[in-house]
Design a binder for these strands. Structure first.
Lengths: 111, 111
DNA sequence: TGATATGTTCTACATTCTAGAGTATGGAAT
DNA sequence: ATTCCATACTCTAGAATGTAGAACATATCA
């Protein structure tokens, strides 16, 4: 053990956090909605999936097929979950930032 | 006023924080050193300057020529400072993340 | 005056970010 | 059954950011 730490890109981090927030209900469309809300910006669905796929390839999250929406129908959902490696990356990314934020007097919390 | 918020990329954020930490002594080589320390990774000098230049073009930081090192000589330094727009971007970037981190039970502080 | 230390500039390529059109699929209406 | 519609995902492509390292510049001292 002594692998170089894996850090997350800015948007990758955002997406992982959104999945955690959504818990059992994390699928593409909902994740997009969550991210848009939090960032107060329109985010394209393509942006979401491209990131999701990339992060899954790295083993930070996993996905599986779900069902379609009961009342209205439509295509089946693809659910996502953050894996251990993903939590680790989130942690490392946060630690990296915290080290540089410590002792700084910013306008916001520098936890 | 109602400009879309400006967010920082992952490395851009790191570099801005390093400048703040270094205060009056923020110039390329030192910034590189600070970033390497904090991230526990080798970062090339090119990576630092490329980012510095891009962020300066956006108006987040400014730079000016300094003097060379007294005892040993060498080329003159180029100092950097984070401007108001940069602090704002740092703030917005942090806020965006915090909104998504709130309420989550992560292994680390979720301030 | 040239060896050496300090520091920056330039160029190039890889990865990430982001948008949007296109495709798939299940239920409802007729 | 066939068409319509809502929900959701896949694909492609281009822009922005991340990253490396060789080349260049310049001040001091032997």
């Amino acid at each position: 053990m002594k692998e170089p730490k894996e850090y997350l890109g800015h948007f990758e981090e955002i997406v992982l956090l959104a999945i955690l927030q959504l818990k059992e209900d994390a699928y593409g469309a909902k994740i997009r909605q969550k991210v848009s809300e939090a960032t107060e910006r329109d985010v394209s669905i393509g942006a979401i999936y491209a990131t999701l796929d990339r992060v899954e390839r790295k083993g930070f999250i996993s996905s599986w097929q779900g069902e379609s929406t009961p009342e209205r129908g439509g295509r089946a959902k693809r659910y996502f979950r953050v894996e251990g490696a993903g939590m680790q990356a989130l942690n490392d990314t946060n630690a990296r930032r915290n080290k540089l934020t410590a002792g700084l007097d910013l306008g916001f919390d520098a936890a």
